[in-house]
């Protein structure tokens, strides 16, 4: 899967779970500071990415991701390994 496609789908999930417009989500956006995520929503974001890409991520590492850009990079590794 192309990185642009991953980015598009990551933004779709973030928009849905955090209830923010997709066009306000940038690569450098931080989930908590820029997109208003509560810390408890990180579990829902991880589950959202897993559902969208049909992958299972290493939870502790996934929960430590703070930005959209890092999420895209992290998910790409799992998508490529499929």
């Amino acid at each position: 899967m192309e990185i642009q496609e991953i980015e598009k789908r990551v933004k779709k999930v973030v928009s849905q779970v955090l209830n923010v417009p997709e066009d306000t989500i940038k690569q450098g956006s931080r989930f908590v500071e820029d997109l208003g995520a509560e810390s408890i929503q990180s579990l829902e974001l991880v589950a959202g990415f897993e559902s969208e890409f049909d992958i299972s991520m290493e939870e502790d590492a996934a929960l430590n991701i703070k930005t959209v850009e890092k999420a895209i990079e992290f998910i790409k590794k799992y998508v490529d390994a499929k």
Partner: peptide
Amino acid sequence: NVSMAIAERLLCR
């Protein structure tokens, strides 16, 4: 904001 598909993933935990 959580769809059934996301909720299913969560409930597997």
